[in-house]
Design a binder for these strands. Structure first.
Length: 335
DNA sequence: TTGTGTTTTATTGCCTCC
DNA sequence: GGAGGCAATAAAACACAA
């Protein structure tokens, strides 16, 4: 082996010995640069694919009238470095592709592991070491980066997919738990509603007793006011139908004035205005009608107002004052 | 042996950076 | 404007089943 070969091989050996976990790096590229070596052709399962680089070198030596020794290889790279036209011509035969040898690829792989970018100096050195053109080395690195990127994308995709599946499982689990909790909430609200109904009824019956007692003993002011109303009603009735006039006057009065508890159960009537003002009263007498109208405005119905701040309960909900809360609470739990 | 799919090497065109 | 990188692609080389 000549000085040039020793120099290059020495460099290759040092380079490979720097690789991590390289077990057989003693003379990794010796076969690469020994043209005609039987080791070269047997290093791969496919004879055609093994050590084409070396084969190229042999051809190159033949082109240059080499003497068959393995010494001109690295000298030829010096020629290439100086722009040897024939060498360049050989490596640019149109329509021909020469696969790199297993050893060459291994060497390039190790180099790629160290650094996947290729500086010009390193490229030239690698080309020298492997008996390739710098452009071939550049192309190999370029293609290798493309392959690496593809694999990286696959890894990223798998990681994302695993992450997505995990999140999906979590979501479904939480969704089921949420459904369960909704059902529990509805059940609890039903119970609460029932209790509130019972409580209000009790309270109302006590209030009604008090009201009845109050009505039995009207104050002087109330009596005077009633007289005033009667006079006005009489005057209006001269002009209009008595019943309609009476209704108008009643509507104009403050609800607080009518605290008759005769129909206190109206609390549980629908709060919907259409229902309130258009009841089916065909079978009611005028007095009963009056009493009903009065009973529509008891002060204790106002607690329902605090629920009316909730937004847009379902239009179809036939709420009795309290269910509006339930509906809105339901919406707040909905997605 | 052959057809077919895959891998590897190489080219082309475009883009960015200096 | 030249060098170098990248994506897309061509085409040779390879692997493998039938």
């Amino acid at each position: 082996m000549n000085m040039g070969g020793s120099r290059v091989l020495g460099g290759v050996t040092v380079l490979l010995q720097n690789q991590k976990g390289l077990s057989s790096a003693s003379q990794p590229l010796d076969p690469l640069f020994l043209s005609g070596s039987s080791k070269n052709s047997s290093s791969s399962s496919s004879s055609s694919s093994s050590f084409l680089g070396s084969r190229s070198m042999m051809s190159f030596q033949n082109v240059h009238g080499g003497n068959g020794s393995n010494t001109s290889l690295f000298q030829s790279f010096d020629h290439d470095e100086n722009g040897d036209d024939e060498f360049d011509e050989y490596f640019h035969q149109p329509g021909k592709k020469r696969r790199l040898s297993v050893d060459q690829v291994q060497f390039l792989e190790k180099s790629f592991e160290l650094e996947n970018k290729l500086e010009p100096e390193r490229k030239i050195q690698l080309a020298k070491d492997l008996g390739l053109q710098p452009r071939q080395v550049a192309i190999w690195f370029q293609n290798r980066r493309a392959r690496w990127k593809t694999k990286q994308l696959e890894k990223d995709y798998e990681a994302l997919l695993a992450n997505y599946n995990s999140l999906k499982a979590d979501y479904e689990s939480l969704f089921k738990e949420n459904d369960k909790m909704k059902v529990e909430i509805l059940a609890l609200k039903d119970k609460l509603l029932l209790r509130e109904k019972e409580g209000v009824n009790l309270e109302l019956s006590e209030t009604n007793k008090l009201l009845e007692q109050t009505q039995k003993m009207p104050s002087e002011e109330e009596l005077a006011l009633k007289d005033e109303v009667s006079k006005v009603s009489a005057m209006v009735c001269k002009q209009e139908d008595i019943s309609s006039a009476k209704s108008d006057i009643l509507d104009a009065d403050s609800p607080s004035r009518y605290t008759d508890g005769a129909h206190s159960s109206v609390l549980m009537e629908p709060a919907d205005s259409s229902y309130v003002f258009e009841p089916d009263q065909s079978d009611l007498s005028q007095d009963e009608e009056d009493n009903l109208n009065k009973s529509l405005f008891p002060s204790y119905i106002f607690p329902k107002l605090e629920y009316e701040d909730y937004s847009d309960p379902p239009a179809s909900s036939c709420n009795f004052g309290f269910p509006a809360v339930e509906d809105n609470a339901f919406w707040s739990w909905s997605y």
